[in-house]
Simulated assay, not measured.
Amino acid sequence: MSTESGKAMFSLAQYEAVMGEIETGTKTFEAKLAEVIPAADSVSSQWYVNHVLAELLQWIARKTVEVGTEILNFIRDVLKGATAPIFMFMDAYKWTDFKAAANGVSADVTTQNLVIDNSDWSGKGHEAYLGAAAAQSAAAGRIGSVAKSVSDNLMLCAGAGLAFYVVVAGVIAKLIVEVAAATAAISSAVFSAVGAMIFLESGAVNTMAIATAVGALAAFLGTQVNALITLHGEAVDPTSFPNGVWPNSNSAQYNDGTVNDGDADWSLKD
Rank of each mutant, 00 (worst) to 15 (best):
W246I: 09
L268P: 06
T26A: 08
S137V: 03
A216W: 01
G131S: 15
L156I: 03
W59G: 00
A13C: 01
M90W: 05
E23L: 12
D41I: 07
N113R: 15
G123V: 10
S5P: 01
L175P: 02
A185N: 03
G203T: 07
E234A: 12
F220C: 03
E23F: 10
T24W: 04
P38G: 10
P238Q: 10
A100W: 00
A219E: 14
S11E: 10
E30A: 15
T230E: 12
A184G: 10
Y129N: 08
T207H: 07
S45Q: 15
V236F: 08
A147F: 06
W121C: 03
F199E: 03
L130F: 11
G195H: 05
T110D: 04
T69A: 07
Q224R: 13
V259C: 07
C157F: 06
A235Y: 01
L217F: 12
G144D: 02
V166L: 06
A82V: 10
V225K: 10
P85L: 05
A101N: 12
V150R: 02
N103F: 03
M208Q: 06
S192T: 02
G141A: 08
E21D: 13
K63M: 01
A139C: 06
V146F: 00
A193T: 14
D256V: 15
V194H: 05
A189D: 14
V65E: 02
G195W: 02
G262E: 08
F29N: 08
W266A: 12
V52P: 00
V115D: 11
S249V: 09
Y254T: 10
F98L: 02
Y254P: 08
A54W: 09
A82H: 14
A235S: 08
A102W: 04
L221N: 11
G222Q: 12
I71M: 07
Q112Y: 07
L114R: 14
V78I: 13
A181P: 00
V36N: 01
A84D: 07
K124C: 05
Q112N: 13
V259A: 08
Y254L: 11
I186C: 05
Q253Y: 13
L200S: 07
A31D: 12
A181V: 04
A140Q: 07
L228Y: 06
L72Q: 06
W266G: 03
I172N: 02
T111K: 15
A193W: 07
A135P: 01
A34I: 04
L56Y: 00
I75W: 03
D152H: 03
A252H: 07
K124L: 14
I71D: 03
F74N: 06
A100I: 08
A133H: 10
A133L: 10
F191M: 11
L114D: 01
A82Y: 05
D237T: 11
F89D: 11
